[in-house]
Nucleic acid binder design. Structure first.
Lengths: 334, 334
DNA sequence: CTGTTAGCGCATTCAT
DNA sequence: ATGAATGCGCTAACAG
């Protein structure tokens, strides 16, 4: 016995109305007499009819699904954003097609193509890196796209994030204030605008404010993982730096533990400020001081922005910077 | 200028062939003369034609997307499974529609309905809880469903996981071996079969093997989060237990830190074994001993199983138990 | 190897 | 308030 899919046509016949009417009640169109609506609803229940979203998508040209491109769900930062996105998406009856892109541009392009082929109504991009090919691809589609947790360095795309430059500048200034002369900047790929452009600019700005000369050897680039943090700890230790700003909590935890294992006392000998305030910052000992990004909110607001764009609504602010805070725990003095 | 979507028909006309032929080259059907294939490919490139997956889905009755239902991406365990799923899905050209269900059964039902309406070709379920309504819903659809990282307590659904009972039994036995008379069992909701049925059974089995009487007051049920772990630590401390098996790394980290803050020395005064061996276990100090679940593999194998089911292939083993290991770090003696 | 013909299940004019 | 007709873009027999 094959799955006898029952269609809008079946209910129409059974209810003695036209399929147009059934379509109307299913879509909540008010132009239906209450009694016919009830009749149709009854048949729908009786036949256990379920609208086919694919057919609906083809006919209406709206898929009610949005694509999400992120480097890796496994990273707490991206997962939190995704959670925010998913929650407001659900609120607006959208579904999420999620794609892990890793760091490869080719993969990102492939993934975008995929999403577009599926006729997603919009996409949210959390990849941090972006090159010209990808930018062109974004530009060549009419499908709305918003960046979440990162900013296009050309500001061409709508985005929701925090002011990364300012956040880092604050962090570094704080570190300098407590007496550190040599502060390290530890981040994921410098190729990514968030790191190479905004965060690094904040770092340099703070140095300048404090009349400290920028020292290239204090900039550490690494993979975005706990193990990578552990690994780079010894390099940092031998750099003579006495403090560091780190762009990712996983990396920061690695640096913290790596340094500690090397006999470096945190925060007495070395101070650390991390970036995302995920649970990780509270799990490690000493607990990490951190920038507080409203991750969930970034995702939620990005999704909200996207709904507006998809509806063709005017949005006055296409590049939204949410407020951030700082929390000082045990990895900083004072 | 509206986005003039160009269709298979445009390509056909421009290339001087029928749409059937275009469809063939797009789908890699071998029955096309190389030269016509080339001609068509050229036109496709020239017109920048992109197949519409929705239309394709409607016509072929296959959406090449699979639905994933998980409690919360934000949990490292589920995120890791999701990663495994996504990677092999990509390998087989499937896309993932991800839905966070939290713990609510109603939400799960709603989410499943959604997925089915979108005509997903299969679904992977990682929710741990399952009640009769949900079981019925699963049973009433022809869409293949596989459980990942959890087992249907009635074994009615295909699943991929580890032998949770055995894993816990090993853990508890080890704890008893090192001299602990009172070992606590700390887990997420006991309502979930993984916890209430399998894990708890392993706990009891180990007690029985060692002729220790089961003590209800040593069973702690809590939310699945770091903060919840912190909170329950004091209760555990006053229970006189000297060791604990914990079902989630986040909870375990909370218990560990909570206990430590209470002045309890780990592992001297209290031993802990956790369950998922996520990075968390290595970030905390002392590092957590843990069951090692091949999380990524569970996801990957589950997805692979699903592809077989979707192809109607025979599978001899519908309930797969992947091997697990134990890693002993600093939260256990010896 | 290639073209013709039907739908897939639904939303949407346009009439009535 | 309701029905009839059309087509969304593509796959899948079936011919030839």
């Amino acid at each position: 016995m094959e799955k006898q899919t029952i269609t809008i046509y079946d209910v129409a016949r059974e209810a003695g109305v036209s399929m147009a009417t059934v379509s109307r009640v299913v879509n909540g169109n008010p132009n239906v007499k209450p009694e016919t609506r009830k009749k149709v609803d009854d048949v729908i229940a009786k036949l256990d009819y379920h609208p086919n979203a694919v057919a609906r998508g083809l006919a209406s040209k709206r898929s009610t699904t949005i694509g999400v491109i992120l480097p890796d769900v496994t990273n707490a930062f991206f997962a939190s954003l995704a959670r925010g996105i998913d929650d407001v998406a659900a609120m607006y009856k959208y579904n999420i097609i999620m794609e892990n892109s890793d760091e490869s541009i080719d993969r990102k392009l492939e993934v975008l193509e995929n999403l577009l082929a599926k006729q997603v109504d919009g996409v949210i991009y959390m990849g941090n890196s972006i090159d010209d090919r990808l930018r062109d691809a974004f530009k060549n589609t009419k499908t709305p796209i918003v960046f979440a947790g990162s900013v296009d360095d050309k500001k061409a795309m709508p985005s929701v994030s925090i002011d990364y430059k300012e956040a880092v500048k604050n962090s570094i200034s704080k570190l300098i204030e407590t007496g550190n002369k040599k502060v390290a900047f530890v981040s994921g790929s410098i190729e990514e605008p968030v790191n190479g452009k905004y965060r690094l600019a904040g770092y340099k700005a703070a140095l300048k404010d404090n009349k400290i000369k920028f020292d290239e050897s204090l900039v550490f680039e690494t993979a975005r993982s706990y193990d990578a943090g552990i690994k780079i700890a010894s390099e940092i230790a031998s750099s003579k730096a006495t403090a560091a700003y780190v762009s990712d909590d996983g990396i920061a935890a690695g640096v913290l533990n790596g340094l500690t294992d090397l006999g470096v006392k945190i925060p007495e000998d070395f101070e650390i400020i991390s970036s995302n305030n995920t649970d990780i910052t509270k799990m490690v000992r000493p607990q990490l001081s951190s920038v507080v990004q409203p991750m969930y909110d970034i995702g939620a607001v990005a999704m909200r922005l996207l709904t507006k764009l998809m509806n063709g609504e005017d949005v006055d602010e296409r590049n939204i910077a949410l407020p951030f805070e700082m929390v000082f725990r045990q990895s900083t003095k004072d």
